[in-house]
Simulated assay, not measured.
Amino acid sequence: MTAPAPPPVGPARPALIADIGGTNARFALVDEAGAVLARERVATRDFDGPVAAARAVVARHAPDAPPDRAAWCVACPVTGDTVTLTNHDWTFSISDARAALGLKTLHVVNDFVANALAIPDLAASDWVAVGPDGPGQADAPIAALGPGTGLGVALLVPEGAGGYRALATEGGHVTLAPGNADEAAVIARLWETHDHVSAERLISGPGLLLLHRTLRALGAEGPFHESPDAITAAALDGNDPLAARAVAMVFALLGTVAGNLVLSTGALGGVYILGGIVPATLPLFRASPFRARFEAKGRFRDYLAGVPTRVVTHPNPAFLGLNRLLRTG
């Protein structure tokens, strides 16, 4: 007896990757090789949750071949099935979202886990070195951090045969330490209204705005600005010394935090700076005290001197990391 022929196999369905932040969610439909078939950015305020946003994107770009698997990263801790964004009011269940979208699998990770997972797949043209640029220690962890709406921090740990494991952290909420009297004065002023001044309190977009206003409150003279973008634009223009001072102080504080992170974790494989702020202000960052403060650890200056620090300029490294997550699970 002849066995019946197997049913014809249709074209492979795409996967849906998403980088979900407090303000925007960036979606892309990708094929099995990770090539982007369609992409769209939506405002989180326009939807009541990621399922509604995903349905709208799929309806516009793949109504006849909806995705059957997905990988999302979110700007918040992921510790169980329920996910609540830190800087937005979206809350969702991973299992419910998977079922609602008809997915076989849905991976959800912290956004800086996705950024860290991108690092092995970055080309040399996807980053710019700041300071000495050696190869880093091959068998050591790599640190990924960067300011945006908040301050994301993650580690990438080598795991044999070219594999890597990304570790989520909440390193953006470590207690912020001053590196000089000016920073100490700013932090002391903030203690009047905040019981804990974290790294993210000042090393972020909202933090830059708070820092600028605190400097003015402490007597510094300069124009008032309504947003972090206005401050960085004024600093880049070169005609606003206070804006330039505020941006430089944020980058100096970032150097302190990055150096502390390497000392605490042994991330001698390198430090990769991501997020929206630094790549957009790269000339200011390269001229800032960041690298000097990174190395300013007294007797352990030499320990840090050989660690490369690189700014990632890839337009969306989280998508690279999410594609890696789809491949490796």
Results as ranks from 00 to 15, higher is better:
residue 64 D to I: 06
residue 16 L to I: 12
residue 105 T to R: 15
residue 77 P to M: 13
residue 94 I to V: 08
residue 299 R to H: 15
residue 56 A to E: 09
residue 268 L to A: 15
residue 289 P to T: 03
residue 218 L to R: 04
residue 22 G to P: 14
residue 255 G to S: 13
residue 114 A to P: 04
residue 136 G to E: 10
residue 269 G to Y: 11
residue 113 V to H: 09
residue 63 P to M: 02
residue 121 D to N: 05
residue 253 L to F: 01
residue 90 W to T: 03
residue 292 A to D: 14
residue 224 F to W: 00
residue 139 D to G: 08
residue 108 V to R: 00
residue 322 L to V: 10
residue 161 A to P: 14
residue 77 P to K: 14
residue 242 L to T: 10
residue 147 P to G: 07
residue 22 G to N: 02
residue 132 P to Q: 07
residue 69 R to V: 02
residue 325 L to C: 13
residue 162 G to N: 06
residue 163 G to Q: 06
residue 178 P to T: 14
residue 126 D to T: 14
residue 301 R to D: 07
residue 15 A to D: 07
residue 171 G to E: 11
residue 253 L to T: 07
residue 22 G to Y: 01
residue 123 A to M: 06
residue 244 A to I: 02
residue 163 G to E: 10
residue 328 T to K: 02
residue 29 L to N: 02
residue 245 R to A: 12
residue 101 L to C: 09
residue 278 V to E: 12
residue 201 R to H: 06
residue 209 L to Y: 01
residue 254 L to F: 07
residue 252 A to N: 03
residue 86 T to Q: 15
residue 233 A to W: 02
residue 4 P to L: 11
residue 224 F to L: 15
residue 67 P to C: 04
residue 60 R to M: 14
residue 178 P to D: 15
residue 285 F to A: 08
residue 259 G to C: 13
residue 225 H to Q: 14
residue 152 G to S: 00
residue 143 A to K: 07
residue 36 V to L: 12
residue 142 I to T: 10
residue 57 V to K: 02
residue 302 D to M: 13
residue 193 T to H: 03
residue 279 P to M: 01
residue 243 A to D: 05
residue 185 A to C: 01
residue 146 G to K: 00
residue 186 V to M: 09
residue 246 A to L: 04
residue 52 A to D: 02
residue 297 K to N: 05
residue 129 A to R: 04
residue 308 P to E: 00
residue 127 W to D: 14
residue 86 T to K: 12
residue 20 I to D: 13
residue 41 R to P: 00
residue 258 A to Q: 03
residue 230 A to F: 14
residue 182 D to F: 08
residue 327 R to F: 08
residue 231 I to Q: 01
residue 35 A to I: 06
residue 325 L to Q: 08
residue 194 H to E: 09
residue 102 G to P: 08
residue 118 A to S: 12
residue 43 A to R: 03
residue 212 H to D: 07
residue 269 G to T: 11
residue 172 G to H: 05
residue 306 G to S: 01
residue 176 L to E: 03
residue 4 P to G: 15
residue 245 R to F: 09
residue 110 N to K: 10
residue 82 T to E: 15
residue 201 R to S: 15
residue 241 P to F: 14
residue 209 L to D: 00
residue 100 A to G: 00
residue 315 P to I: 03
residue 224 F to T: 00
residue 121 D to R: 06
residue 220 A to C: 15
residue 57 V to D: 04
residue 8 P to L: 13
